[in-house]
């Protein structure tokens, strides 16, 4: 086994390089004055200027962030309620049923979610656009929040609640002074996951967005379908930096809640 150590490290470095090559490739050519993703001609910031001067793109970025923050906030509230609901349900079968239904959207392929939501919104008569995208982002983020919060609830000793009740706390006090503080790390993790799910989603949004409304993923897709344009590269550099900042933030939160377990369960 000892002789394998070198091979092991070489393998890890190899996988690491493969994983990062496309990202570095994108960033490297975002500075290419040649306008292509091969033959680096000269250094330029032209593409960054183009991205920064693109008002339409910034409106889309604003849309994307608005949707993500709203969806994450609302789905966190719904998800915490869902986790509490599952926690309080006493019947084993009922609990299992709720958990199964909760997980349906997590394992469902995005096309199914997108197609079925498209039918749903059309039938209810919700116009495709901001509302439909927001509703579907809330919908697919709820189960992941539930899954992040529920283990925290189960970790909590029930005697804590009994003690609080014995000392005269009412239900509202028990919730706000005992339960919520205890599960805060789970709530933060859930909120963060919902945020990244929403920011990252392409397929579902692609189905339920109308003509007038676009998010960043959809915009990147339609630009990439037209071929290579280095302003996408410049955009990806900016997004990558933003992502790194977000991940560092998440790292500190998850350090508090002890492990990276469950980080990015599925997809996409």
């Amino acid at each position: 086994m000892r002789g394998n150590k070198k091979w092991a490290n070489a393998y890890l470095v190899f996988v690491f390089l493969i994983l990062y090559t496309p990202i570095i490739y994108l960033i490297y050519y975002s500075f290419n004055s040649g306008g292509t993703m091969h033959d680096f001609e000269g250094f330029t910031l032209e593409w960054y200027k183009e991205v920064i001067g693109d008002t339409r793109l910034w409106i889309i970025v604003l849309n994307t962030l608005t949707i993500a923050l709203l969806a994450a906030a609302i789905s966190t509230i719904l998800g915490v309620m869902g986790a509490l609901a599952i926690y309080y349900v006493k019947k084993r079968q009922m609990k299992q049923l709720l958990l199964t239904l909760n997980n349906v959207l997590i394992v469902s392929p995005d096309v199914i979610i997108g197609a079925s939501f498209l039918i749903l919104f059309t039938i209810i008569g919700i116009q495709l656009g901001f509302t439909s995208v927001l509703l579907s982002h809330i919908a697919f983020s709820v189960p992941i929040v539930v899954l992040m919060v529920l283990p925290k609830l189960q970790e909590m000793s029930p005697t804590l609640i009994d003690a609080a009740r014995d000392l005269g706390a009412n239900q509202w006090d028990v919730l706000t002074k005992v339960i919520l503080p205890f599960i805060t790390p789970g709530i933060f993790a859930g909120f963060f996951m919902a945020l990244t799910y929403s920011l990252d989603d392409f397929a579902v949004t692609f189905f339920v967005t109308g003509n007038g409304f676009s998010t960043l993923s959809v915009e990147i897709y339609s630009r990439a379908r037209q071929g290579i344009s280095l302003s996408i590269n410049a955009l990806s550099t900016l997004l990558f930096l933003f992502t790194v900042v977000l991940v560092i933030g998440y790292y500190f939160i998850s350090q508090k809640s002890s492990t990276l377990y469950g980080m990015r369960g599925r997809r996409k």
Partner: peptide, 20 residues
């Protein structure tokens, strides 16, 4: 570090392969 690339938008990674 191994997981970090999943936070980069999937479409951007796919787009990178158009170049590669």
């Amino acid at each position: 570090l191994m997981i970090l690339p999943t936070w980069v938008n999937l479409l951007l990674k796919v787009y990178a392969f158009l170049g590669i």
